[in-house]
């Protein structure tokens, strides 16, 4: 749905741009393609790694690790798993919902969801390409530790 809106918006603007100035529009498309092709090799590699990772770490395995009575150990594991895996789009929340139903605790799921979104170990090569090593490493480390605060507050408020 959100994706559809983006498509409509992109094509409306593209049409408008084309009507205003054909040359500029062609240039913008060329830039779009170049930016895409620029990260394509890394993205393809990442998608293969994601496949292997998620084949090993499926919902059952994760829910065993982050059960409601797994305490802070479960929070840490949930955070680590979330930091490492890259779950495409909306499936992430469905998975998290499934984990809750399968007996995971709110605090553990809070950590998992937070690092899942903020930390991207597997996409670090792409991030370094744009932001350099220092910012990339620090951003991921800070986001990782921040996620424990998120987990704690979610565990207190929701759990």
């Amino acid at each position: 749905m959100a994706n559809l809106i983006l498509y409509v918006l992109a094509f409306l603007l593209l049409g408008f741009s084309f009507w205003k100035d054909k040359k500029k529009t062609m240039l913008s498309l060329k830039k779009a393609w170049k930016s895409f092709e620029n990260i394509l090799p890394q993205l393809l590699m990442i998608m293969l790694l994601v496949g292997v990772l998620l084949a090993v770490l499926d919902a059952q395995v994760i829910s065993q690790v982050v059960g409601a009575d797994s305490g802070w150990f479960g929070v840490v594991l949930g955070a680590v798993v979330g930091a490492v895996v890259l779950i495409p789009g909306f499936i992430a929340f469905q998975t998290a919902g499934m984990l809750l139903e399968a007996g995971a605790g709110y605090m553990q799921i809070g950590a998992f969801v937070s690092t899942l979104m903020m930390v991207g170990v597997i996409t670090i090569p792409v991030e370094i390409k744009y932001f350099g090593k220092k910012i990339t490493v620090w951003r991921n480390v800070l986001a990782f530790f921040f996620s424990f605060l998120v987990a704690f507050i979610i565990g207190t408020v929701v759990g």
């Binding site: 994706n3 992109a10 779009a32 393609w33 393809l44 998608m47 994601v50 496949g51 495409p88």
Partner: peptide
Amino acid sequence: QISVYSIKEMLLVLPPIFILLGL
């Protein structure tokens, strides 16, 4: 299976982002 799915998702999600970026 998961990789193919992820690549499909990537190819579905990225085009409008890059078009908007170019514009």
